[in-house]
Structures are given as structure tokens and as C-alpha cells.
């Protein structure tokens, strides 16, 4: 589906990323920092009773999102899961819309109807049923292929979802019909409270290969390495118009949802040493990193302030959609925040 020219780069993370003339490492660090601070702030807001329901944080996995999504362009599709904040922030770069959604406001990504597990923004979709959307995203990729659009689709799933049967129905059809679909398995080693050793028999990568799908794996939290790795894979999916299955071995540093972490502390500490933000921060000078951190901090705070001012849905919003607000002028807010400090 071609997008009208006047919509700009709203659904084109690759164009936005390439237009930013700063060094690759600087850009990757800032994107990951935004995800990290956004979610740390979310957890604070939950703690303060300002948010309702639950949330699934991506902390520790940020390098995956920036490594993959910065290669996606106008018309490309993402279908993500319950742990989607990082994916959305890289794809849409609209933290205020996600914050408002999490706060249940009518100007949130989907007007408060879905919460972060069930959002739709341009060609970005999520759903909270493990693996259940795999047929949908396969069909989306098939439709794009039949239309000859050249667009591709990317599905993000986790190690836990490898237990769902419908995933394998989708992989089978994706291969049979040679659809341009990249399946990214983020193996964060835990399915809720169950370690991967107790939920998964056999090997991850061969699950893809069994269907005749090209498959591989990468064990890294290095955003630059992941960015290079997925650049090649995504170009191949796009050029060859056939599926690929890639496993990223990573680690979820925080709990599954809000406060349900019973994992061994020494294991978490071991992985904390390799978490993506530490390595990425070391790429920059301390001054560079501090400047980015301040900017991200101001942006997240502006998103929180803006979201707090947004109205809750009223009865008419059961049947009526509020138009998406224009992007928040966060640079101005950043200046304000700087002055406040």
C-alpha cells in the first residue's frame, strides 16, 4: 500500500534514521536510552499508582529493536507482542502517544482501547496473544507480495511463543508461499517465570530450518553488531521475497510484568554486565552521553506531563475515534526542563 507523499516519514524509521546525520553509535545509543528511560519512568509511575493494569518491560533487550527496525521503510509492517514498547518507540518515535495509551487517555496510540499490548500505529501492530498474530502477519506479507508492493513484514516473538502451535502453521505457510516475512525470536531466556530450559525442547534455529526457511542466530547485546547483522538479513528478505527466521539470544533484565520476578539474583547480575546500554554508552564521551541522557530525560518527562493533561475517554468514544495529535514539540519542552533544572 503506497503512502501519500505528504505524510512524511511517520511510517519510515529508516528514512528518519538516515536523515539524522550523527554517527551511527550516537543514534543507536539515543534510541536505546529513550526506551530505557521511558520504561524506568513507567515503572515509577506504576509504583506511584498513576498507571492502571499491567506492563511488560523491554529493559535489557533494547539493542534488538534498534538493530532491526531502523532498516524498515515506508510500507513495511511490524507485528509485535505484549513486550512491544521498544519496538514501538523505534518505529513510531512518539513516546507521548504510548505514555498516554498506558495512562488510558483518549489521545493514546489507540485511544485507550487497547493498552500497550494492543496497539496499531500506521503499519505497526501488536497483540497480546502469544503467537496468535503469526497467521495475521503472514497474511499481511502475502498480501504485500501479491500486490507487488515490495514491502516486507517483521514479526517479533519470544522464546516462550515457540510453544504455540499456530506459530508453526504460520511458518509452514510462510515458506510454502514464499512470503517476505522476517521472524525475529528474542530469546530473553524466560517465559514469564519459567526458564527456557523448562519450556523448550530441541533447538530454536532448526525450528525455522525445518520449514525450509533460512534461519540463523546471534548472541549479542551490541546494538551496532545487531544493526549490521539485520541490515543484511532485511535486504535479503526484501530482495528475495522469502521468509527468514532469526534468533537473538538476549536477556530480560526486569520482571515479566510489573512485579513478578523470582529469578536468581546472581543470574540477573551476570547478564547485567552485558546489558546493551553499558556498552553503548562507552562508545561516546561522557559529555556526549550526558547530553543525550538529558535530552531523553526531558523528552520522557514532557511525554509524562503531556499525557497527564490528556482527557480520559468518555461514552462517545466507545464509537468515536479522536484524531491523532500532532507530534509533541519536545525540543521546546526539553529547553523548559533544562531551565527548570
Amino acid at each position: 500500500m503506497s503512502q501519500p507523499a505528504d505524510r512524511g516519514d511517520i511510517a519510515n524509521p529508516r528514512a528518519r534514521f538516515e536523515r539524522d546525520g550523527r554517527p551511527l553509535r550516537t543514534k543507536l545509543f539515543e534510541q536505546m536510552m529513550l526506551i530505557r528511560r521511558f520504561e524506568e519512568r513507567l515503572l515509577e509511575l506504576f509504583g506511584e499508582g498513576e498507571l492502571f493494569g499491567t506492563t511488560h518491560c523491554y529493559i535489557g533487550q533494547e539493542a534488538d529493536a534498534v538493530g532491526v527496525i531502523n532498516h524498515l521503510q515506508d510500507g513495511d509492517i511490524i507485528f509485535s507482542n505484549h513486550r512491544c514498547h521498544g519496538h514501538f518507540l523505534v518505529y513510531g518515535d512518539r513516546p507521548e502517544l504510548l505514555m498516554a495509551e498506558l495512562m488510558g487517555r483518549v489521545t493514546g496510540v489507540v485511544g485507550g482501547r487497547g493498552g500497550s499490548q494492543h496497539i496499531c500505529f500506521e503499519n505497526f501492530y501488536t497483540n497480546g496473544i502469544q503467537g496468535g498474530f503469526m497467521p495475521t502477519v503472514t497474511g499481511m506479507a502475502l498480501a504485500e507480495k501479491m500486490k507487488g508492493s515490495g514491502n516486507i513484514a517483521v514479526a517479533f516473538i519470544g522464546d516462550g511463543t515457540l510453544g504455540q502451535g499456530v506459530l508453526y502453521e504460520a511458518l509452514n505457510m510462510a515458506s510454502l508461499w514464499s512470503v517476505p516475512l522476517l521472524v525475529v525470536v528474542e530469546n530473553n531466556r524466560w517465559a514469564q517465570s519459567t526458564p527456557v530450559e523448562r519450556e523448550l525442547a530441541g533447538d530454536m534455529v532448526t525450528r525455522g530450518r525445518a520449514f525450509g526457511i533460512d534461519a540463523g542466530e546471534i548472541d549479542s547485546t551490541d546494538a551496532e553488531a545487531l544493526y549490521g547483522h539485520f541490515g543484511e538479513i532485511i535486504a535479503k528478505v526484501r530482495n528475495e521475497q522469502r521468509p527468514h527466521f532469526e534468533v537473538i539470544h538476549t536477556y530480560r533484565l526486569c520482571h515479566h510484568s510489573k512485579s513478578d520476578d523470582m529469578r536468581p539474583e546472581d543470574e540477573i547480575e551476570r547478564f547485567r554486565k552485558n546489558e546493551p546500554l553499558i556498552g553503548a554508552r562507552a562508545w561516546l564521551t561522557d559529555d556526549e552521553a550526558r547530553a543525550i541522557e538529558a535530552r531523553v530525560e526531558a523528552r520522557v518527562e514532557a511525554a509524562v506531563r503531556w499525557s497527564r493533561e490528556q482527557p480520559f475517554p468518555t461514552p462517545r468514544h466507545l464509537d468515536e475515534r479522536v484524531a491523532r495529535p500532532a507530534p509533541m514539540a519536545f525540543e521546546a519542552s526539553a529547553t523548559d526542563a533544562g531551565e527548570d533544572a
Partner: peptide
């Protein structure tokens, strides 16, 4: 080109059709 005979995967192909419908087809 427009009659897709499927594997025995009802959940799979019902969902595939939904994805196609969301991207402009009428399955």
C-alpha cells in the same frame, strides 16, 4: 493465483486471511 489451497491449518489460514483483509484484499 487467487485460489490458495492450504495445509490442514484452520487457525493458520483463517488468520492469514485476516492479515490479507487488513492489507486491502477481500478473502
Amino acid at each position: 493465483e487467487r485460489v490458495l489451497t492450504t495445509p490442514i491449518s484452520e487457525a493458520g489460514f483463517v488468520g492469514v486471511a485476516a492479515g490479507m483483509a487488513m492489507r486491502g484484499m477481500r478473502p
